[in-house]
Computed example of a mutant assay.
Amino acid sequence: MSRVTQRASEMALDEATVTALRAALRTTAEEVVQAIIDEVPPYANALSGRMGVTIRRAVRTALGHYLDLASGNAAGGDGGDAAYELGRGEVRDGRSMDALLSAYRVGARVAWRCLAAGAVSAGLPAAEVAKFAELTFAYIDELSAASAAGHADQLAAWGRAHERHLEHLARDLLAGASPDALLVAAQRAGWHPPDSLTAVLLPAAQARPVYRALDPGTLVLDDLPDATGVLLVPDADRSHLLRQLSGRTAVVGPARPWTHASASHARAVRARSLSPDIRDTEDHLPELVLSADADAFADLRARALAPLRALPAATAGRLEGTLRAWLLHQGRRDEVAAALFVHPQTVRYRMAQLRELFPDLASPNRVLELTLAVSLRPS
């Protein structure tokens, strides 16, 4: 049994008192609404027009149900259900629970003043007036609690819905959906598109903790295959982002226009497939370019380095390393020797061998092909 039902069972207003109070119900409701308008700023412009009619009707209904309780002609529940829905509606109208509780406090004061005046005029004994007061404020407390529950439940439901919309947007971005579809998804999620997004790959368990420290517009997914998490960070300061990720197993893709975030994600995925040690994809562009088409790279190496295939493996390896250093240092023999930890005469000897194997070594096209071929060792 609720406190209101218990209080109501301890008293029953006589028919004459109830009739007198019901006669003043409309006036009481109007005074309650006017006091809320005057004293609770968020309702200053909210109780006009159709909304005002609805609220006035709700106040009269609540007061009528209260009188039914006080006269022993109703059980608790209906008023609480309406109050619960009122709390949910306040969220939809953008008002806080503080505003609604203030309205309840003002309404309780004015309603009691009117009801008490009517009850005394109807000859209600002082002892019954005291019980009437207890019932009145217990009823208001019950309505307040029901509205608070409705307000909290609606906020939670909106929060879950908002979270789902953001997740759908993130999935659409990774899938490379059309700009029009992405704009619709962003509007549905209430997400303001930035100029750019930067994809970050990291273990799923780390996604949420890192996400909380980033820009609030960051999108997060932590339920992708292979226990991978993805963050899409808006307009990231790259050096700052890398510092924030220090100590974590993360791969940071390039910044891309927000509708092309899938390209940033794709590069991060490819970088991770090359090496688990890559953190910043911008530091590994040559490897990423050369690994973009593994078959083409293998064919290029096979053709460009064909003259080395006839040599013993150890010799071929030494000559390939020398060729790589020679190309990297643009033929400066002392620098090549230092890079290989050998004597400059050794470099001279090996380069003589390489020129015999590659007679057109001075050709720009041959230099380009060999540079690409020896830039990465095949996986």
Score class of each variant (00 low, 15 high):
E10N: 08
R26A: 15
V32Y: 01
V32K: 02
D38F: 12
E39V: 13
Y43S: 06
G52Q: 07
A62C: 08
L67G: 01
D68M: 13
A70I: 05
S71G: 00
N73H: 15
A75D: 11
D81W: 13
V91N: 02
R92C: 03
S102F: 00
V106P: 03
A119W: 01
A122N: 10
F132I: 06
F132Y: 05
E134D: 07
I140E: 00
I140F: 09
H151N: 06
H165F: 15
A175F: 06
A181D: 10
A189V: 08
A189T: 07
D195C: 07
S196K: 04
L201N: 05
G217R: 08
L219T: 06
L224S: 00
G229V: 03
V233E: 00
H240Y: 13
L245M: 01
S246G: 14
T249W: 11
A250S: 01
P254W: 06
W258A: 02
H260F: 11
S273M: 15
F297P: 11
A302K: 14
A304W: 06
L305P: 05
P307R: 01
P307K: 00
R309D: 11
A314W: 07
H329Y: 09
Q330H: 09
G331L: 09
V336T: 02
A339C: 10
L340A: 11
V347M: 02
R348Y: 11
Y349V: 09
A362T: 14
R366A: 13
A373F: 06
V374H: 02
S375F: 08
